[in-house]
Design a protein around this nucleic acid. Structure first.
Length: 316
DNA sequence: AAGCCGGGGGG
DNA sequence: CCCCCAGGCTT
């Protein structure tokens, strides 16, 4: 859960997750849909699928235990260099250094290494930390450096005056702590999308997204991006035609929902409508759901906002 | 090495 | 409003 996600965001998910899946076996046994539903809103949904698969592998091949072995851990889906070393050092007391974004930033500043943060320096950092990590408490050592980065040697506004290692820090001496590592800025595209709440007998149609790519395996209302020169209602008709293979009628505007991803900002324009002629849809990827039953399906956060709107509105 | 993958909090 | 976050996988 903590992969590329802040501790604060993880904590409530971690608590309810352990209540829902108290051990590896219960997680391995759970349907993927329930697993994704428990992950709903946390993002990077491939992590949930990996954890589900890893639980299955550990249940089958490691007697339901988390292996105390680097090679075995590294084979599990979602276990890269960081997570493997984290389990070994934090859970099993192995003297392996941990290198995450915090540790990279702390070391880059301590050593005054210019440039952007990147894993290319991890080998050098691992050698360095390997020489000083104490065998008596490697987990404490690793967490102390990460915590220093999270609370004091922060990405923005580092608290150098409070820093316990300030006297060793070359960036603090040079006053370059704000530009190490070099900030990277990225383009945020603006996207408009039309979303179809297709109604039939008090139920709504949802479809399952593909197992790979953005929001993999989550469910959502049909719809998609507006193309140049297209009106939103034209987008709506085209997307429903492409995804469901049917025409719609009775189109009415419902609401607009904004949602920010890392690389783009989406405005969802939501319409209600109905099919001209109801098409036959494979139940594997399409479901007619009530406002109550839709809550059991894993949805992207934008779709959750639409469901909340529908629930508050009562009649569509 | 670089791009993709979400969402929310904090400056 | 912009940045980043207890990374991993794919190309």
């Amino acid at each position: 859960m903590l992969q590329q996600t802040t501790v604060r965001a993880v904590i409530p998910y971690y608590e309810s997750w352990l209540e829902r899946f108290p051990d590896l076996r219960s997680l391995a046994r759970a349907p993927l849909r329930d697993v994704l539903r428990a992950w709903q809103g946390l993002g990077y949904y491939q992590r949930a699928r990996n954890l589900h698969r890893a639980a299955g592998a550990m249940t089958r091949e490691h007697a339901g235990l988390i292996p105390d072995d680097a090679a075995a851990l590294r084979k599990l889906p979602g276990f890269g260099p960081y997570t493997t070393a984290a389990v070994l050092s934090l859970a099993y007391g192995r003297p392996l250094p941990l290198i995450d974004a915090n540790v990279r930033r702390v070391l880059m500043r301590l050593l005054s290494i210019e440039g952007g943060s990147s894993p290319s320096l991890d080998g050098k950092f691992a050698d360095l930390l390997g020489k000083v990590i104490p065998a008596s408490a490697p987990g404490d050592f690793n967490q102390a450096i990460m915590e220093l980065g999270a609370l004091v040697c922060r990405s923005a506004n580092p608290q150098c005056l409070l820093c316990p290692v300030r006297e060793f820090c070359r960036a603090a001496a040079d006053g370059t702590q704000e530009t190490i590592p070099r900030p990277r800025r990225l383009e945020v595209a603006k996207i408009e999308a039309a979303v179809a709440v297709i109604v039939r007998d008090g139920r709504f149609l949802i479809r399952r997204r593909p197992d790979k790519g953005l929001l993999a395996g989550l469910w959502e209302f049909p719809g998609g991006k507006r193309e140049d020169g297209e009106s939103l209602v034209e987008t709506l008709r085209r997307e429903v035609r492409e995804e469901v293979g049917a025409g719609i009628e009775g189109v009415r505007f419902l609401t607009t929902v904004g949602h920010a991803y890392t690389r783009f900002q989406v405005t969802l324009h939501v319409y209600s409508c109905r099919f001209r002629r109801a098409p036959a849809l494979p139940p594997k990827d399409f479901r007619w759901v009530t406002l109550r039953s839709i809550r059991r399906y894993p949805l992207p956060s934008g779709s959750v906002r639409i469901v909340d709107f529908l629930a508050a509105k009562k009649s569509v």
